[in-house]
Amino acid sequence: MTWPRFRDLLTTYLFVAPAVILFVVFSLFPFIKVFQLSVFEWDGISPDMKFVWLENFKTALFHDKSWWTSIRNAGVITVLALTFQNFLALVLALIVDREIKGKNFYRVVFYLPPVLSGIVVGLVWNWIFDGSHGLLNHFLVFLGHPEWQRAWLADPATALYSVSIIHMWKGFGWGFVILLAGLQAIPRELGEAARVDGASELYIFSRITVPLMLPVFFLVSILTVLGTMQIFDIIIATTNGGPGFHTEVPITRILAAMLGSSRFGYACSLGILFGLLLLSISMVQMKLSKWSSRYS
């Protein structure tokens, strides 16, 4: 190899080196480390780690009821978000897509909740849902239904749904923005031509808008599932997983294992299982998304 060639190669590698070093240190190494730790019993401090084979995975899958409860809870919130949150986002996007007065103002307003901190949102909603002096209870009394008052976040019958409402309120803005972008990408001429041919608005929506929007719907649903399954900050700010295990979600369980019980190995195994679950869901959705792209 000639000196100029060597110098060129060296220059190239040195340019790439910072990015590679950062990737290895902050992404690759932690990723591999999680897999390594998942087969050990380790408290996070001690230099001694006990190799336990797949015991951590076995415990998580077959003995840890609270883990499955947390998956179920996250699943419930996800289903609610997929339906109600995205329905609301779509309706608002359809409204704002039309030529209405102040549409830019609405676009900003609808996009505000997602950019707020989850902790702040949680604290505000804590006040709304408060059992003694909450806004919602005051409103119910005003409506003449004092018997409906309750501590919404502390009652096992309503805690999970209350948390879901907070999450959906905070999250619908993302879907709104993406769906609005999708709607605006549909050529206006298609709708106009259909109208000239006498098609109703419902017909245009079901036969033109929905098919062309299918890839966008799938994108929004993938983001909703991934975002909702990883819900965490709102839970911490409102219920901390309680009452009992009624609002526990996977991330709070992983944190409880890691920081509450100092079981780093077990927490890593939960993280891997959770990662695999999200990966499987994403793969199914990607398949469906590809299919929808072809269809649309």
């Binding site: 408060d130 059992g131 003694s132 501590a151 976040l153 502390a154 805690a159 409102t238 219920t239 901390n240 309680g242 009452p243």
Partner: peptide
Amino acid sequence: LASGVVTMV
């Protein structure tokens, strides 16, 4: 107990 203590910080 005051209302909501089970999830109160």
